[in-house]
Structure formats: C-alpha cells, structure tokens
Design a protein around this nucleic acid. Sequence first.
DNA 1: GATCTGATTGCGTTGCGCGCAACGAGTAGT
DNA 2: ACTACTCGTTGCGCGCAACGCAATCAGATC
Lengths: 257, 257
Amino acid sequence: MSQSLDRALILLDALAGGPRTLDQLAEHAGVHKTTVLRLLRTLESRRFVQRDDARHYRLGTALFDLANRSLDSRDVRRCAEAALRELNELTGHTVHLASYEGGEVVYIDKYESRHQVRMYSRVGKRAALHCTAVAKVLVAALEPGRRDRVAAEIDYVPMTANTITSAEAYLAELAGVAARGYALDDSEHEDFIHCVAAPVRGQRGEVIAAVSVSVPRVLLDHDGLLALVPDLLRAAERASAACGHNMAAAPPTAVEL
Amino acid sequence: MSQSLDRALILLDALAGGPRTLDQLAEHAGVHKTTVLRLLRTLESRRFVQRDDARHYRLGTALFDLANRSLDSRDVRRCAEAALRELNELTGHTVHLASYEGGEVVYIDKYESRHQVRMYSRVGKRAALHCTAVAKVLVAALEPGRRDRVAAEIDYVPMTANTITSAEAYLAELAGVAARGYALDDSEHEDFIHCVAAPVRGQRGEVIAAVSVSVPRVLLDHDGLLALVPDLLRAAERASAACGHNMAAAPPTAVEL
DNA sequence: GATCTGATTGCGTTGCGCGCAACGAGTAGT
DNA sequence: ACTACTCGTTGCGCGCAACGCAATCAGATC
C-alpha cells in the first residue's frame, strides 16, 4: 500500500465537495500541510487538480477526461460487438442491439441475417414500444413508476393480430418478461417475423441495452424460436460481462420485479 | 513532487483507454510490475480501480462519483436546469451548458436532441476555444487583458472552412459577440452543425456560464438558427435569474466591451 | 506433467517523502 | 505605517516507505 497515493486519493475525495484550501485539506487528511502541498503539486502537474484562486484548489479536467475516455471505451456497442457477432454467426439470423434513451427505444447496432429474408430496420431507427421484444426488455427494466407512465402513454397501434393493444395487457406482459429474463415478439409487429430479446447489463446490474434475434416464421416455428433462447442469453451475458457486469455480485435476473 | 503518486496518475491515464494487465501497465509507466501492483492495490482500496477479471484492471466507480459530485457542487448547473430543460423541449435540439475554468471551457451539462442526429459531446468535455459558440461567449466576457492573452495563446487549428484561424479575427469576432449579446458557431467546428450561445449571468452581472443550442444544418438553415435566438436569450435570462442575477440592477448585456 | 505466462510475496537497500521550522506574501487592525 | 496575524511556500535532515530483484505461486496451453 502506498501511503502518499492513499493520501492523495483522500485529497481528491475532499475536493469533490468543492474548492478547498491547503489547511482544510491538511486537516481532513490528517497530515502536515507541506505534505498536502507536494501532493497537490503532483496532482496539478497531471491536471487532476487546479488552482481556483490564490488559496483554493479544485478538481481538474483530467478527471473528467478520464471518465469520458473510460465511457468511450465502455461504449455498449463496442463492448457487445464480439458477443453479438458470434450470436449472429451461430444462428444465422438478424441480431439487433437496442437501448432506451429519453423515452424511446433505438436500435444502435445490427448484424444482418445470412438468409434471403431480411428485416426492415436500421441503426438509429426507433423501435415501437408495444410490439418489439427489445422494447419490452428495456421498458420492463425501468423503475416501476416510470414504467407505468411509459405504458400509459403508448399509442397501442395494432400491427398484426397478435399486437398488444392495452396498457394492462402490456404491463402483464412486462411482468412476464422480467420473471423470465427474456422477451418475445410473437409476430406482434410483422406477421411473418418473430423475435426473442434479452437484457445487457452494466456494472451494477442495471440494464443498459437489449439484444434480440429476429427470425422469419418460414424458417423457424415458435418452438424453434424458443430453442434460440439459451444462445441468446449466453450472448447477452457475454455482452454484459464486456460492459463491466459482474455476475457474481449482482442478483440473478428474475429477482427484479 | 511525489513519485509514487505521479506513477499512479500515469496508471489511471492508461486505464482510461480500457482494461489493462499488470504487465501492460508496468511497461507503460516504465516501472517494475511489483510497484504497479502496490499502486493498484491502493487505488483499488479507494475504488479508483477495480479488477475486471483475473488479470485485467479497469477504472473504478470512485472516479465517476468524483466527477459527478464535483459537477453537482457547481450550482450553476442546478439553477439553470429548469430553464435549459424548457429550452430543450421547446426547440427539440441539443442544449449545452458550459463554463470557463482555469483557462478552459468545459461542458457542465447537456440536454439531448430529440432528433436522430446527435452531437458527439459529453459533460466534462472541453470545448475548443476558437470554434465553439459557448467559448466565444465566455472568453468575450473576460477582462480585456486576460481575454487578449487567452486569444494570443490559442492554437487556431482549422476544423472546417469557416473556422477562425487568427487571434485578430477571433478578437474581432468576440467584440461582435459582446455587442450582440450572443455568439454563433457557423459550422466552424463541424461542417454539419451550427450553434448559437448566450451568457448566463450571476448576481453582479458577471458571466458565469454559457448556454448553447446546437442544430444540424439539415434541420435548420442559417436563418432558422437565428430564429432560435429569442428563445435562447429568454432561457439564458431565466437561468441567470435563477442564479441570482437581478436584471433591473445590472446593465443590459451590450454595455460591456 | 512440462512449459509457458503472468500475478504475488519476501526482502534488503535507498532515495523519496515526511514533518519541522523558518521564510515570504498578503491582509487586517490600530 | 507599523504590527500582528494568516496562509502558502521553501530548505533541510532523518527515517521509513517504496522500490526493484528474485523466488514463488497460480493458471492456462500443449
């Protein structure tokens, strides 16, 4: 254990609360102010802190740079890439990655089917909330209050004979999704296609995206689709791990309501 | 200068690029891996790094906590929140809040566009001084001497055909900004985006932050962008009021040079 | 089970970082 | 204008914290 580093980290922690003077920091860390000064100088040289005015120090830009760069490297798309590509090659079907952003579910990545029949979708397109598997996964993962509000505001446009057309039915469906750990779109969006989707989880177990496999019914019947679920879940777990999800630390998926 | 701290900061920097192994870090920092191990352990005990798997380390949650707490403590953000949210909902475009700190302009808040096209920017990211509207607003508000010095030290990297590339042109632009009370970025940073920005003022009329609206040119032409200015100024004034700015007491914006 | 690769530990040495005390700079008080 | 006070800053010598080495352990790969 490095003493000086440890003290420096204490300083950073103190500075997170706002600008501090040398003496304040020295007292907080329980060391001589000379020591604090030296540590601050080192931190300053790497832009972790900066002088606010003559006698106040504050956190510097390096911290934000680090956080940003780290987020870049954690970009769900990049992290999930390997797992999704594998799922795509394994099944041969269309694989989508979607995330929930500001009230909408958006496709953020897509791996094309190797079959003739392809889906009409593209990266950046919004997914209908009430009749897609990815949306069910993502909405099911919202906090209860928000989820209910979202469900209440959906315009339940019927797309096929199977489309869910009421908030009650939708919420019941979401409960099932949460319990199972994956979602189905049983030809609720387009007659000739059905899908399964599963959540991708982040560091603290929170759902950050959803993966789905979409299959034309001419290629697989309902049971055939369900047979893909284990592969789907495995891929979703791999993607989650790549996003920093620690499976040991977080409870299994079915626990959350 | 503290050697061990300095090395630890180098490690953090390396880790920002993604998970690394002990050896990679040791080579990068140019020290023995034993040393790296000890530093990492200290960093780990304070949650600045965490183990990814058996042989990879990654940045930990403490960094993000620090960044967030630090941003929280800048109350401009909290005060301006309501006004900016309203501006965002009114226009539907990306709204940024930025402030000038220690020679740099930093984005301290962001409200996403509701359109598909989104900007690459993030809270905590630094804004280029010579080709962003927020920076123009903030630099224009500095005391003349300091402003000139800042202008002289800018590296006028051309980003687009419209980018300002000399201190003279920049200072002339700032004079215009001060006179108008708002700033433009006429695709000076990115070809497909242009922005307008206005100052947020504190109690004594001093500029404490800048608000901007960024719009893809495919959505609004130059005149369309200018049409947003009244809404922008209204939002900036609301934010100023929330920050303690008394409009009656302070002179109108155009007065300052 | 042999042979990697890479993480971890024990240990002796050294130079780094520590606190002290003196100094400097700026501010307030009379 | 002088003093007194408060902080930040510097020089210095001692002691231990941190360093690198080498050995060991753990786990994968063949």
